[in-house]
Amino acid sequence: MPQLDVHDFAPQLIWLAITFVTLYILMARTALPKIANVIEERRDRISRDLDEAAQLKSDTDKAIASYEQALAEARQKAHAIAQEARDKLNAEIERERQDVDRKIAEKVSAAEARIADATSAALEHVNAIAQETIGAIVDTLIGAQPSQDEISAAINSAQKQK
């Protein structure tokens, strides 16, 4: 077995030491710190980016909240304006209605006065017509014209009997 040839041990050990130590120095001094740095930097960068994203997200949320608040306020204001307009219109309509009511009431009372006048006038005429009618009826029945006084006395008594 060539592995057990003692004469070959020294050169292998010497070159193993040289190459291994060289590799160790290269790795420990240069390569590993460089790789560690870049991994660290990447980790920092990623966490920084994530922080920034979270920041942006919270900004967005804030903007959405303020927008929604503004929207709610605007809606409330619109409601208030609409309510005011409705109230004003209602008041106007009420006023107008009262006006019209008053006018109607005036007309009604005027008409009622006229009706009362007409009624009383008519009632006065009724007596005269009754006297005339009675005079005519009596004249036709008995052929004698009763005096004015007799007729009115008769009407009054008839009205009293009723």
């Binding site: 070959d8 050169p11 292998q12 010497i14 070159w15 190459t19 290269l26 790795m27 240069t30 790789i35």
Partner: peptide
């Protein structure tokens, strides 16, 4: 001491060279 550069040494040196190339070459 016999410190001859042997075929074993050659492949050790080559190995160290390749590992260094892989881990040192290029900017990170």
């Amino acid at each position: 001491l016999d410190a001859s550069f042997t075929n074993s040494s050659l492949w050790m040196v080559l190995g160290v060279f390749l590992v260094s190339l892989l881990l040192l070459a290029g900017s990170k």
